[in-house]
Amino acid sequence: MANTIKVRAKIKGDVASVKTLISHPMETGVRKDKKTGEKIPAHFIQEVNCESAGKSVLNAQWNGSISKNPFLSFAFKGAKSGDSLKISWVDNKGESDSIETTLK
């Protein structure tokens, strides 16, 4: 599977700002298929973890009410060039993906 996570990280001073886009359908389980009238089963990301240089930076827990192809941006201090940045997600079906880059 091609990687579903896109990351863009920028360091200014010692603050790293991270923007991520994940491609995921984020089905709530409430929506109905227009043709068949059947409910589309829920399929959404429940947890997103981000760690940098071995330390947890952010643990996000999501419901189905986060938009399709979720966007997330955040920032953290104490970052320096060359630190690793790892982002991973797990959804309600147990599917997951992760990406690792280095801060520049």
Partner: peptide, 25 residues
């Protein structure tokens, strides 16, 4: 929303309290 809680973010020690995302309403 049927389930009001949309997201929680647990911040690390050095993470700034500044989060952006997109939600459904």
């Amino acid at each position: 929303n049927n389930q009001p809680l949309t997201a929680t973010f647990n911040l690390g020690a050095k993470t700034e309290a500044d989060i952006s995302t997109r939600i459904k309403m």
